[in-house]
């Protein structure tokens, strides 16, 4: 497939004081795929998400969404142009109900609250959120439910590209398995292109069409999941044996 990629990132550099979080990262997310973005802690995965979604402005490099340069645009514009994200550390809307939180996402594409409500019910149903908890306030639900609401909020904005940041961190094995199904459904049924950021290898291997590996702010490998996990550079990065 050689159509225009949904997202193209070119030579991103981001420094914090003396620390270089991203050191010239270039990558593409192709239409319809699930791209796994992996790397050990501190390898720059979340910084990459923040640079793409406009939370950080990269020091160098450009970000293109469907060919349009969106580098340094504010987060709300990036979102309305079609990039949604979830958060590694959940950011629940504690006093709003689950349904209201998802409606807030759906309202990006409509001014009609009732339509947003229907959309929110649809999205929550599709990702399998328990219906009897639609009206529970955000503060009263479990971690996996938070992660689902976070995902539903983002999906409800009808993104072209959804960046999922460490969504299975802290989840139990059976919950991880369920999440694989949910993310596949978002990809297949809604046709949303996904960038899945994770450091749990097994999850990424089971879900991704393609994988890129970040290490110390650089892209060190790229390819089908089964190949990438065999790559000696990747193994080294994960096992922490440093090249002298």
């Amino acid at each position: 497939m050689s159509s225009e990629p949904i997202l193209r990132v070119e030579g991103l550099v981001k420094r914090f004081g003396g620390v270089v979080a991203l050191n010239g990262v270039s990558l593409e997310v192709r239409r319809g795929e699930i791209l796994g973005i992996i790397g050990p802690n501190g390898s720059g995965k979340t910084t990459l998400v923040n640079c793409v979604t406009g939370i950080y402005r990269p020091d160098f490099g450009r970000v293109y969404l469907l060919g349009e340069d969106i580098t340094g645009e504010p987060p709300h514009l990036v979102a309305s142009k079609g990039v949604a994200r979830t958060w590694q550390k959940v950011r629940p809307f504690a006093k709003m109900t689950v349904l209201e939180a998802v409606m807030a996402g759906a309202l990006l594409r409509t001014g009609d609250v009732e339509e947003a409500r229907r959309e929110a019910v649809n999205v929550l149903t599709m990702i399998g959120f328990p219906r009897e908890k639609f009206d529970s306030p955000g503060r009263s639900i479990s971690l996996v439910e938070h992660k689902l609401v976070d995902l539903a909020r983002a999906v409800a904005t009808r993104p072209k590209l959804l960046l999922v940041d460490e969504i299975v961190a802290g989840l139990r094995p059976h919950e991880v398995e369920a999440m694989v199904g949910v993310i596949r459904r978002v990809n297949k049924e809604l046709g949303v292109t996904l960038g899945v950021i994770e450091h749990v290898m097994r999850f990424i291997v089971s879900i991704s069409d393609r994988v890129v590996v970040l290490h110390e702010g650089r892209l060190i490998a790229e390819g089908p999941p089964s190949e990438v996990v065999q790559n000696p550079l990747v193994v080294e990065a994960y096992l922490g044996t440093r090249p002298m």
Binding site: T53, P92, T157
Partner: peptide, 15 residues
């Protein structure tokens, strides 16, 4: 209400 809860998260939803 979304802004009251979390400005950063609201912004990421396009607010």
């Amino acid at each position: 209400k979304a802004i009251r809860e979390d400005e950063t998260a609201a912004e990421a939803l396009g607010v």
